[in-house]
Design a protein around this nucleic acid. Structure first.
Lengths: 215, 215
DNA sequence: GCGTGTGAACATCTTCACAGCA
DNA sequence: TGCTGTGAAGATGTTCACACGC
């Protein structure tokens, strides 16, 4: 019993949560409805939700409010995680102002940039600090998650600094692969990966290779 | 033989490509090296690459240049896909200027925004057009992929318009679930999903629930 | 010897089909 | 009756271990 909730399920819980958040007005929902909105099968929804416990009512469905609570609890969103965003270019600013970030379970506790012209300005209500203060501030503020939104060249350095400051979870948006010591979890969000996967499917359908005719 | 290359493999190919692009200077590499850099096992790398064909040399390794070419070919990056970015807020601007987008296989052919103040300005070398021209321009320019970077409220409308204009592939960055008719592939990139998954792992390690004691 | 390529074993994820309960 | 919850079957993905060819 290493993982109470399967990995694949964890990845879908945020999706269910988003759907439920968008329909906070209705009292109940069903696996069929959730499935239609999520674009997956009802059986998958039921199985996913069953890992959290038996919170549905047979013949009726799920209570929206309760389900939201249970999913948030399973994801550990009952407490707020403190974020530090490093890099306030377009991407960093977009992240800082992103609805989902502030909405549930996350608060932006600090924002850093290497550019002196940006230091002192405000982003999403937080004053930008110089990267030189990163280690000190991260420790002082008890930052849980570091968000790396700097150019590729600077990403490894920032990651090292965050890890040195004691951050255990890092979300990397820079288009490069960064390494960190054991015990530090890194998730990579590569915007171009998504495009390339889309491109692959287009490629299969349109001007694909000879084999495409078989599919 | 429905899918020549397994789905899970396709998702990792962009990662290999990125790693290879960063070491274009060296002539050869090995599954061990790639695995270390990608943070996965060597066996997985070999299996993934074997789906593309037998491009390695036993006892030696892989030719970096050839491997790059074969991965690009498998992903359909031998031709350029034309993108349209809708929404030029911080996120849209970040996407337009994102290295990976222009680098390989993708070109930004059009950029749209609903704000009259933004129309006419330049983003990443492309003049911003009003959304009213979306259908016409998308058809005229032969846009392959639509990138939705508008607020959540506007996302479904933009998706509908893109689909109506004949776009078959859509990348949605808005924090909401959008639907499209059959035949239109949608990929969702939810920046907060990634955070929530990180939060889940933190939650398991640190102040976990009572059940955590079992794990 | 060395690192790829690959069947076979194993693990995980998804789908099915239906029992169980409101 | 209606919809959840879930074992069992099936599909997909990963790891192992070793044959193969440089």
């Amino acid at each position: 019993m290493k993982t109470p909730v399967p990995r694949a399920t964890v990845q879908r819980l945020p999706l269910y949560l988003q759907i439920l958040d968008e329909r906070g007005d209705q009292a109940r929902t069903s696996s069929d409805e959730l499935a239609a909105l999520a674009g997956i099968t009802a059986a998958k929804v039921r199985k996913d939700l069953s890992y959290l416990g038996s919170y549905g009512t047979r013949g009726v469905g799920y209570d929206v409010e309760q389900l939201r609570f249970e999913i948030r609890r399973a994801l550990g969103l009952t407490r707020d995680w403190r974020l530090a965003i490093v890099g306030v270019g377009n991407l960093g600013s977009a992240l800082a102002n992103y609805d989902g970030f502030q909405a549930g379970g996350f608060c932006i506790a600090a924002v850093f940039d290497a550019d002196p012209a940006k230091v002192g300005t405000e982003v999403a209500g937080v004053t930008v600090s110089p990267v030189g203060r990163l280690v000190r501030d991260v420790r002082r503020l008890g930052i849980d998650i570091g968000v790396v939104a700097v150019p590729a060249e600077a990403a490894q350095g920032v990651t090292d600094t965050l890890a040195a400051a004691g951050v255990r979870s890092i979300l990397n948006f820079a288009p490069t692969v960064v390494r960190a010591p054991d015990g530090v979890e890194i998730r990579r969000v590569d915007l171009s990966t998504e495009l390339q996967v889309l491109g692959y499917h287009l490629h299969l359908v349109t001007g694909g290779p000879p084999e495409a005719a078989i599919a």
